[in-house]
Design a protein around this nucleic acid. Structure first.
Length: 113
DNA sequence: GTAATGACCTTGG
DNA sequence: ACCAAGGCCATTA
């Protein structure tokens, strides 16, 4: 399936894999990094197809702008996402990451195109 | 080919 | 300050 969007998806997956351990980011940040800030939804959609990729994608490190685990329900188990985040020493309360701004990992700042 | 949906974000009242 | 609606882009039915 050589589609045009495949490239965009691949970019998203690459960025997500580049997220350091114990760090999180938002869909919008990735969208901005890819130059499609308006396509924040597409980033989330890419995550939806993330589990279809060969390589594992740490989608649990990708949250919305509010720091909420909106996509936890899309994981194999709703608890898996929070479990993984807690393993990264990240406190998750009520499906929300604490100190989100502190753990926030901005690709545009770190990768600095 | 058209219509509806979605792991979102921004702006208006 | 809080609540509601629209917009953007790609995928699926």
């Amino acid at each position: 399936m050589a589609k045009i969007t495949n490239d965009f998806f691949d970019q998203v997956y690459q960025v997500v894999r580049l997220i350091p351990k114990g760090r999180v980011t938002s869909y919008g940040a990735i969208a901005v990094y890819l130059g499609a800030k308006s396509s924040s939804r597409v980033v989330g959609y890419a995550m939806n197809a993330a589990h279809t990729q060969k390589e594992y994608v740490p989608a649990h490190r990708v949250l919305n702008r509010n720091g909420q685990l909106t996509g936890k329900h899309h994981f194999e188990t709703p608890f898996l996402m929070q479990e993984l985040l807690e393993k990264e020493k990240i406190k998750v309360i009520n499906d929300t990451v604490q100190n989100f701004d502190k753990y926030f990992w901005d690709p545009t700042e770190e990768l600095k195109l």
